[in-house]
Amino acid sequence: MSNRIINWFKFASPQSFYPLAGKMIPWFWALAVAFGIAGLWISFFVAPTDAQQGEGYRIIFVHVPASWMSMFIYLIMAAWAGLGLALKTRLSGMMAQALAPTGALMALLSLWTGALWGKPMWGTWWVWDARLTSELILFFLYIGFIALQAAIDDPRRADKAGAILALVGVVNIPIIYFSVKWWNTLHQGASVSLTKSPSMAQTMLWGMLIMALAFWMYSIAVALMRVRAIILERESHSDWVKELREVKS
């Protein structure tokens, strides 16, 4: 039992996590490429043309996974941030910082592909639908987190301040989501149902799930690469970094 606890905390140190992340990155990249090729193949060649939406619906194979990831990454980021505040582990803050740009990218991608999908389907680039609006606000929250971390020079302070902001954001996300939802139903403006036809073809679902897996693997790989760069930057004064092969050469 005690052995296991020690093992977990071993990788909380940047020095021991750095080589581990280095070993994991190629695997996640390989999985991301494999799932990506399989998912794109299914979504472009196997999945049937939708009866109502034609070929244009195929953008959901990128749109839906991107939206999922944007929401999920914020939760993971907040979890790392909370862990960092509670246990004062240095790596947690670095992980939160490494995840934020990927999350913001996913939110932007989701908004962008949503607009591209909305134009042919609804005849407009943007409607003030509850999901669109809350995704936009989520994007703002990511930008706020990144901006706050970038504005504070001391990395330890930046981590803690960012952690508080991420936790406040996580409490607020459900409140924002429901307030936007009720606001939207009250206005009855452009109420467009986003729900797809009830019986989604099996292959479409598979394509979407495999694409989601590809996005997962990509996000993990990129976050690990970024966290390695952050470790090198912050630990550049330490001896073990100076001993590294890639730093020496």
């Binding site: 703002f140 706050l148 504005a151 504070i152 607020n172 936007v180």
Partner: peptide, 18 residues
């Protein structure tokens, strides 16, 4: 913090939405 005023609005305004 550097540029605190602008940053403040970026952080707080999304939280004011509800």
């Amino acid at each position: 913090v550097r540029g605190g005023g602008v940053l403040l609005s970026l952080l707080v305004l999304p939280l004011y939405i509800p």
